[in-house]
Design a protein around this nucleic acid. Sequence first.
DNA 1: AAAGTAATCAAGCAATCACTTGACTATCTG
DNA 2: CAGATAGTCAAGTGATTGCTTGATTACTTT
Lengths: 216, 216
Amino acid sequence: MSVKKQLFEQFALVGKALSSASRLELLDYLAQGERHVDALAALSGLTKANVSQHLQTLKGVGLVTARREGLNVYYSLPDDLVIDAVAALRSVAERHQAEVHRLVDTYLKAKDSLEPVEAEELWRRAADGVVTVIDVRPAEEYEAGHIPGAIHVPLGELEERFRSIPKEKEVVAYCRGPYCVLSFEAVAKLRLMGYTTRRLKNGFPEWKRDRLPVEI
Amino acid sequence: MSVKKQLFEQFALVGKALSSASRLELLDYLAQGERHVDALAALSGLTKANVSQHLQTLKGVGLVTARREGLNVYYSLPDDLVIDAVAALRSVAERHQAEVHRLVDTYLKAKDSLEPVEAEELWRRAADGVVTVIDVRPAEEYEAGHIPGAIHVPLGELEERFRSIPKEKEVVAYCRGPYCVLSFEAVAKLRLMGYTTRRLKNGFPEWKRDRLPVEI
DNA sequence: AAAGTAATCAAGCAATCACTTGACTATCTG
DNA sequence: CAGATAGTCAAGTGATTGCTTGATTACTTT
C-alpha cells in the first residue's frame, strides 16, 4: 500500500472513531471535564461495558486520554484539537441540515401552495398578523373595495414593488375569483423570488358575498 | 430517541462519511478542484462504480456537490467547511501518530539500550561520526590511554558537564570492563536526561587487548 | 486473605459497510 | 434512430461494527 494511502488510512481511523453518535455524545460530556466510566455510563444511558469499549476506540486514535486513580479510570480530552474536530463535523452537518430543511420546505410549500387558502382561514390568520394579503387587481377594482389590510400590488407592478412585502410571512394573493389568472401568476412570480405564497381559493366578489369585512 | 441523540446521529453521519480512506482521498483530489467521476477513478485507482458510490455517500451529508455538464457529472467541495473538517481529522491523527512514534521510539531505545555495543560496531560508527564516545573512568586512567576521540566525563562530573555532549547523536559510555558499574550508571543518568545511550560491551582493557587504536 | 467495586476483556449476534460485477439510465454524436 | 460514453443502480460477498452478556482483572477496604 502506498504511503499516501496509509496516511489517509490513519485519518480515516479518526473519522471512524467519530462516526458513532454514542461516541460523539461521550466526547461532548468529556468536553465539560474529566469523567470516569460509570459517570459516563449514567449520563449516556449506555451500559458500562459499552461505554468502556467506546472509550477504548477513542483512546486508540488519541481522542481521549485515560488516568487511573484508585478504582476509577478518569477519561478526558487531551487537547483542543478534539473539540475542533467535533466542531468541524457539527458545522458540516448543520450547514447541510439547513440545506435539507430549505429543500424540504420548498418542496412542501410548493405542494401546499397549490392548495388555495379558504376565505375563513385567511381571515383568521390575517387577524393574527401571520400573513400578508395582497390584492393584484387593477387600481379601480381595489379602490372600489378590498379585504381589510390588503396591500395593493397590481401584477404589472409586482417586480418593482415586491420589496415592500415582508419575506418572513406567508403571502396570500387574491383577485377577482377562482378563475382569475392574476393571482396564479402573482403566486408563481413571488415563489420564484423566494416567498411562501398561496392563492385565496375564491376572489373578492365571493368574499363580499360571504359577508366578510370589506375596507374601502 | 431524544433530540440530543438525533443531533449526534446527524454529526455521526458526517463522521461516517469521513471514515474511509478512499473517500478522504477523493476529497483530497476535489480540494484541488472540480473533477468528474472517471477522472477521480483514474486518480484513485478505484473502479468507476466504487467512486460513484463513495461520491453518493459524500453528497448525502453535503461534503460534495454535483453538477452535470453533458455526459460528465462534475463533483466539487461546496465550501471550506469540508476542508476544515478533513484538516481537523488530519491534525488529530498527526498529533496522535507523533505520540505513538515517540512511545515506540522510547520503548525500542529502552530495549536496545540494554544491549551493549560491541567494540567493533563502536569503532565503525565512531569513524562515521555518528556516535559520541565518553570515558567515565577517573582522570588518571583516561590519561593513561583511551579510545580515540572519546570525551572524558568522569561520572562525578556528569551533571555539570553533560551540556558538552550533543543530544542528537547516540552516546556510548565505557569504563574498565564488562563488570564496571561506572558505565551502567552513566547510561542510566544520561537516559534520564533524554540521551540515547548505550554501554560499550567490554571496557578499555579489552579494547586495548583487541589491538584497536588507542589515543593518549 | 476475603470481599467488594470499577473497569476491561472475550465471545457471539445482527446490522452495516466496502467493494465487485453486470445491468441500466441519461446524454451526446453520427 | 443506432451506437458510444459517463454515470448510476442493484445484488451479492466477506469483513467490520455496535451492542449484549458473562467472565476476568485491577485496585481498595475490611
